[in-house]
Nucleic acid binder design. Structure first.
Length: 342
DNA sequence: GAGGCGTGGCG
DNA sequence: TCGCCAAGCCT
């Protein structure tokens, strides 16, 4: 991975790290630069999984709750699946939670409770891809890995003015970044580039005038930083419809668990039918709209008297629905019913 | 390589 | 309002 470091590369890393020393964001999972503290690989890993495609603001509370409740990988590995899934509810991309548990158990079972300290070792664990392996190797273990996330992609595509469209540009971006990675403080370097992308080299309206690497940024010189990186066009989202069943008895609600694969896999949910292209005939007692990554959904809530015999599920106290850990889609329905009934 | 996979915030 | 986007991974 690492390489001969040219004079200009040192200069780049130096300016990035100098800026980071002054401007690093204070985050619950982050060791402040030059504090002399040693990062806990478990916490670094936990944060990286939660931050996949998810904003810092959304993650903060979940990170605090998870690390308080399961302070080590051994604690997490011993947790009940249902508790972990419920605690993840609302954060999205639920395959991450299933892989989080699988990964914790693999670390305990196959690695004596210690995370592998190499990129390749980390990459072999469930839920850890190229980015996360490099990020944990670099931040937790000081390895000079080439960390490339969407922020860093944007920073490098602009600095080197790489106009090849994504995802083809990834190869060029990685090649451009590799010789810039310092052997000293590689973790801070990666976090610095991500902070830079999040606060200065932003997708829209980048604040080039205060950027620590403005002087040799090729896109800045050309005045087209905001147009980079070039991304492929998005596809239109279809609209779907579905039914959900409100089955209530003695102040309890009938909940099911969705299958492990597919949408909202492994999560508690209201029972219901398949999601289809056409709206249902019934008008129901409530209706909500929800937008997923690849389709929009209108869900109609219908009252039913008894559980379907074949459906496996559980009666849940209506007074404690929050603890069920329903995904946001179903939370919208239960919130609406709570409003109606007072 | 392309598509499946959540959610909330922001301009 | 609504499209875009956020520390991607898996198949």
């Amino acid at each position: 991975m690492s390489v001969q470091t040219s004079h200009s590369a040192e200069n780049f890393a130096g300016r990035i790290l100098g800026w980071y020393d002054r401007a690093a964001r204070v985050l619950p999972w982050r060791i402040p630069p030059n504090s002399g503290h040693v990062p806990d690989p478990y916490r670094v890993w936990m944060a990286e999984i939660m931050l996949q495609q998810t904003t810092v603001a959304a993650v903060a509370g979940y990170f605090e709750r998870f690390t308080a409740r399961w302070p080590s990988v051994q604690h997490l590995a011993a947790a009940d699946d249902a508790d972990v899934m419920a605690a993840w509810a609302g954060l999205g991309y639920y395959a991450r939670a299933r892989n989080l548990l699988a990964c914790a158990r693999a670390v305990v079972r196959d690695h004596g409770g210690h995370f592998p300290d190499s990129e390749a070792g980390l990459r072999a664990l469930p839920g850890i891809g190229d980015y996360t392996a490099a990020a944990v190797a670099s931040i937790a273990f000081g390895r000079a890995a080439v960390v490339v996330d969407a922020n860093i992609e944007r920073v490098i595509a602009r600095h080197r003015r790489i106009t090849t469209p994504l995802p083809m540009a990834k190869r060029e971006i990685r090649a451009a970044l590799a010789p810039l990675v310092p052997n000293d403080r590689p973790g801070d370097f990666a976090q610095a580039l991500m902070d830079l992308g999040a606060t200065i080299c932003t997708p829209r309206g980048p604040a080039c005038v205060i950027c620590p690497v403005m002087t040799d940024c090729m896109a800045r010189a050309r005045g087209d930083a905001e147009s980079l990186p070039v991304k492929p066009p998005k596809k239109a989202k279809p609209h779907r419809h579905g039914l959900a069943y409100w089955i209530e008895e003695a102040d309890r609600l009938w909940l099911v668990r969705r299958p492990d694969k597919g949408m909202l896999g492994g999560m508690r949910a209201l029972p219901g039918g398949a999601w289809e292209d056409d709206p249902p005939a019934e008008s129901g007692i409530a209706r909500i709209d929800h937008s997923f990554t690849h389709f929009d959904l209108t869900l109609t809530l219908v009252r039913r008297e008894v559980p379907l015999s074949a459906a496996e599920g559980e009666w849940w106290p209506l007074s404690d629905l929050d603890a069920a850990g329903l995904p946001t889609l179903y939370r919208k329905l239960t919130d609406k019913m709570r409003e109606k009934d007072g």
